[in-house]
């Protein structure tokens, strides 16, 4: 993955004081974080802590109530006000999203799942095909071009979904609990390709319950609870020597 070195000083994604409520329930309170190019940020925390909502706000699937979202130093959301639709569409080209439930298009072959989005964006079809084959190889899915999603295992489907996101060459990739819908034995193969992307310096934000993975792969770990960022830092700090009582309590359940 190409890393743009000129932008090393500025974050690809910056979120400031983001807030979000569902009705009366505040799910995100005063969330700030920034993601530097080439970094992997893991977000951990109990269910309902707002981790997924944070990713969904960053990818415009949920509408934040207040705060800022900046991509490449430009405002997509400024003090709770969203940029015009055309601008948001341009921001959408900067990120990719991998969902818990894969969300592949069941009526499309693997190849069409991967190739149609870039083709619709006007990219050259031959180049798109070539890139798709390259990505499938990288995902360990050679020979699966013409398969339909239902013919694949969950782990394979998720790897297709990752290839589909990568085919658009995003600057940053979001993972929303990418292995939570998978059998334990299939989890490993998906984590392996994410780890491989980290080695290639792909910028990523990963919401996960896989603690050993988060510890090994991330540059930074964020622990969230009840809509707040409770603690964040280098994985060795957060996992090895957590400062907050709530973090210790949470990590104890994972036998860290």
């Amino acid at each position: 993955m190409p890393v743009n070195n000129e932008k090393e000083t500025s974050a690809i994604l910056e979120i400031r004081k983001l807030s979000k409520s569902f009705g009366e329930t505040a799910v995100l309170k005063d969330i700030s974080l920034s993601v530097e190019p080439g970094n992997v940020v893991s977000i951990i925390g109990p269910s309902g802590s707002g981790k997924s909502t944070l990713l969904r706000c960053a990818s415009f699937l949920e509408t934040a109530d207040g705060g800022d979202i900046l991509y490449d130093g430009r405002y997509a959301v400024n003090d709770g006000v969203y940029a015009p639709k055309a601008d948001l569409n341009r921001f959408r080209t900067l990120f990719g999203m991998v969902f818990q439930s894969f969300n592949l298009f069941p009526h499309y072959s693997v190849m069409k799942n991967i190739c149609e989005p870039p083709a619709l964006r006007g990219r050259n079809r031959d180049e798109v095909r070539e890139r798709a084959l390259e990505l499938l190889k990288k995902m360990g899915l050679e020979g699966k071009e013409n398969a339909y999603p239902y013919q694949l295992s969950g782990g394979q489907q998720q790897r297709v979904a990752i290839a589909r996101a990568l085919a658009l060459d995003p600057e940053i990739l979001f993972f929303d609990e990418p292995t939570s819908a998978l059998d334990p034995e299939l989890t490993g193969e998906v984590l392996k390709v994410i780890r491989q992307l980290a080695d290639d310096h792909m910028t990523m934000v990963v919401v996960t319950h896989e603690m050993p993975f988060a510890r090994a792969v991330s540059n930074r770990v964020i622990f969230m609870d009840r809509g707040f960022i409770v603690e964040e830092g280098h994985p060795e700090e957060v996992f090895g020597d957590p400062k907050q009582e709530r973090t210790k309590q949470f990590l104890k359940n994972y036998n860290q």
Partner: peptide, 24 residues
Amino acid sequence: GQYEAAEVLGYTRFQTFMRIILPQ
């Protein structure tokens, strides 16, 4: 999830309906 995936992948609302939703 089908709508959400399409949105993130840059499908317009019309493209989402015609290509993703309607055939299913």
